[in-house]
Design a protein around this nucleic acid. Structure first.
Lengths: 112, 112
DNA sequence: CCTTATGCATAATAAACTTAGGTATATATT
DNA sequence: AATATATACCTAAGTTTATTATGCATAAGG
């Protein structure tokens, strides 16, 4: 990703969260979605994304569906049942992490 | 640190922030402070902390002051002038990161 | 024709961490 | 007396996770 080294570890959770929201997405779409949602601040590199997707698939959290659109290959990824359960856990963990970080960095912030 | 792989990249900033607040701290104190502030959620491992401190020192952001308390060695670290300036930058970057993450993970949160 | 965008992927490298080990003193427990 | 726990420093080896660089291929715009 672009913005320094802060994002390590959270990429998988971000992917799971997006797939949970969107139903199914393909790799390139994920990079663009994250870029848009963060106004260009987070740029997922392909060298990080595709290995991450493959790993999540190997772990049984994602299913793949290949499609051909405009003569171009697309691999749609979607959550398996196990993936949906895991998404809940990882999101909770990430949210807790964010709260901890906030508390360390800026205890004046309050979250609603 | 203990809680998974989420904290990567933010350790240096956390150290700088704490030293900015506390004036001077020694290594063990930092681990305990972070543990306390996060109610045990973030546990900085020594294998991460000491190399980080030495690197920050090598970068000219920290100064060291050795003291002997109760027959035990303590190395107090404190920000240099360059360290104070850098702390401002890194904190701003980390806060921006936290906002981005929040926006991705839970857009319903508002920050005050 | 060449660049930009779309779409996939991997290999080499670098950074940041965990795990495991080491040294040493002080205090509390069995 | 022996052992565990807490304090206090440190490093080496290995893992994870990312970046950078590269490759293949199609489509659209200049």
């Amino acid at each position: 990703m672009s913005n320094s080294k802060l994002y390590k570890g959270s990429l998988n959770t971000i992917i799971l969260k997006l797939l949970d929201e969107q139903g199914k997405m393909y790799g390139y779409e994920i990079t663009q979605k994250v870029k848009a949602l963060t106004k260009g601040e987070l740029q997922i590199t392909e060298g990080a994304l595709y290995p991450a997707l493959h790993k999540l698939e190997a772990e049984g959290l994602l299913d793949v569906e290949v499609a051909k659109v405009d003569n171009r290959l697309r691999k749609y990824y979607m959550l398996t049942e196990a993936g949906e359960k895991e998404t809940v856990n990882r999101l909770a963990e990430l949210e807790e992490f964010i709260r901890s970080m906030q508390n360390l960095v800026n205890p004046n912030w309050s979250i609603n």
